[in-house]
């Protein structure tokens, strides 16, 4: 974990530290058990092929959870996720980097809280954004 970040430390346009994932098929099976999503296209390549896929694909919700980790690791223990989302626009596959990134788009005060809005997304090594989304987080203020 990095040092605690404060509202005053960040600016619109800043990129937060990226998080790079690279799934094994074992990780996808762990996710199936952990999330309860037992859909076979994520661990059975014959069923994936029968669905017209090149092979097993990474669960969309796992990429959403990666973006949750991206935010959590940046926020530190005094920061808080208020809301985050992503859309599943492109497929990701095992043994290929999934790069999780975020850029600050706004800073604002609401109900006495210091809020930061971000664009967040996962991208492939070639830069294609496969899961674009948005987040709103609460950062501690130095006051």
């Amino acid at each position: 974990m990095a040092d605690q970040i404060y509202f005053e430390d960040v600016n619109v346009g800043d990129e937060i530290p990226k998080l790079v994932k690279n799934c094994t098929t074992q990780q996808l099976v762990m996710w199936a058990a952990g999330s309860g999503d037992m859909y076979q296209i994520h661990y059975d390549k014959d069923i994936a092929a029968g669905n017209g896929l090149p092979g097993v694909i990474v669960h969309g919700a796992l990429k959403n959870a990666f973006l949750g980790q991206l935010l959590h690791d940046w926020l530190g223990e005094k920061g808080e996720i208020k809301k985050y989302n992503c859309q599943y626009r492109g497929m990701d596959v095992p043994a290929q980097d999934i790069i999780c990134r975020g850029v600050i788009t706004a800073k604002r005060q609401e109900d006495g809280k210091s809020l930061v809005d971000l664009d967040i997304w996962t991208e492939k090594p070639d830069g294609e954004k496969t899961s674009p989304g948005k987040a709103t987080v609460i950062l501690p203020s130095r006051g």
């Binding site: 969309g60 919700a61 959403n64 949750g68 808080e80 996720i81 208020k82 809301k83 985050y84 989302n85 992503c86 859309q87 599943y88 989304g133």
Partner: peptide, 12 residues
């Protein structure tokens, strides 16, 4: 069915 997207919102 395809999963199109997910959002989580928390209330502190």
């Amino acid at each position: 069915l395809l999963n199109g997207g997910t959002e989580f919102e928390y209330y502190g």
